[in-house]
Design a protein around this nucleic acid. Structure first.
Lengths: 218, 218
DNA sequence: TTTCGTATAATTGTATACGATTATACACGT
DNA sequence: ACGTGTATAATCGTATACAATTATACGAAA
């Protein structure tokens, strides 16, 4: 999340390698040599090392001491698991958000929904990209509203993981419209201070997302 | 988890700083200067830098680019939140473990329980330490048995966090005995292939732990 | 006195150099 | 031919050197 705007070389290298893994450029079990990557990106080994170690903590890379760094790869089962866990946590997040959300955050959520509807009706190449971005924003606001540093931390982590899955099976059919409708329902439940409903809806929201993926995959 | 046996300087420094934060040696918002720490531990800045960046990913340190590394600290609310999230995930873990556990893992769980009972009846300074260690082992086996790399990853992360809380309010009253009894109940539910019950028990197990903490704190 | 700007110092970011560890190749003996 | 041991090369781990950035001190002007 923060790395997006990290101007340091380490941050840039981190992004590059990450992208490379997610896009399949670096394949599973492939060895990532510090010197080679550094040379390719025109930087020294130092920022590469630091980037690799951060990627390890994110689970995208496995580092064997004194041996090397290897691409971990994410299986279909991993993706399923990610969504199962996220489903629970997003539910909990919605519950806490219901109890702690501010007027300002409510307004921002509404804004995001309105913008989502606008972009979803537009055509063009940036349509999907915009909607995905707004989807991310919607959830980020909820994370913030939960008022829990911890929950926000772990959900942001998963959000990163989830990007992998998104790249693959993204917004087919009328999933976009349905997703927005679900966002609206969640927002309404939060407005009504109905924590139970908000939790359930957020739960199902993620569940539907993964279900949609299954259809694509199968 | 792995860092425990990482013989590299980076791993050692990581441990040292981590311990320093958890024990309150480094206080909240305190600046962690690379050179100072390196000098204190008799190493250069390089491993210190890498350790600090790993600690950032764990949430114990905040790094502001070109400024410095600062101790994040964990509030009482954070601890509460950690246990709330862990409670859910341990429940999910127990459910999946019920579906995937092997005979070997079942046997190991039983071993751990027997050993726990043995040490809990002993007196001495290492009593608590041993029991805590075995508690960790019990849960680690469950994480493994869940057969989910993802769940294991996130739960291990939280386990690290949870250590903070343990240092403070640990095993008062008869919590040790009750905890072991709960472990036994979870194991039995898994043996019976009763995923619902296993999930519920694991859930409550964490809930009881945090409840016990509250009593201590209040 | 306050405020601003500049010079200086301190600290982080990156590059490079060197030592330690591991992988590879090849010769040797069986 | 096969396995083993040693020498060589490749790679990682750490230390050090230098550049970039940020903090601090101090003085001049309002």
């Amino acid at each position: 999340m923060r790395e997006q705007q990290d101007p340091s070389l380490r941050g840039q290298v981190f992004q590059k390698i990450r992208e490379g893994i997610l896009k399949g450029q670096y394949k599973e079990h492939e060895e990532l040599r510090e010197a080679a990557i550094g040379e390719e990106l025109g930087v020294s080994r130092t920022p590469v090392r630091e980037a690799l170690r951060q990627l390890e903590l994110e689970g995208l890379v496995e580092i064997i001491p004194n041996k090397g760094a290897y691409v971990t790869g994410i299986s279909d089962k991993d993706v399923q698991d990610i969504y199962a866990v996220r489903s629970m946590l997003e539910g909990l997040c919605a519950r806490w958000a219901t109890e702690n959300i501010t007027e300002r955050q409510l307004a921002r959520l509404e804004e995001v929904i309105i913008l989502s509807e606008f972009y979803s009706q537009k055509l063009g190449t940036d349509r999907e990209e915009q909607v995905v971005l707004l989807d991310g924003t919607f959830h980020e606001i909820l994370y913030e509203a939960s008022n829990s540093r911890i929950l926000r931390h772990v959900l942001s982590d998963f959000h990163k993981y989830a990007q992998v899955a998104r790249k693959n099976s993204l917004h087919k059919n009328d999933r976009v419209e349905k997703s927005i409708a679900e966002h609206k329902a969640i927002l309404q439940a939060i407005r009504d201070h109905d924590a139970d409903l908000a939790e359930q809806l957020a739960n199902e929201h993620i569940f539907h997302a993964v279900k949609n993926m299954n259809i694509d995959a199968g």
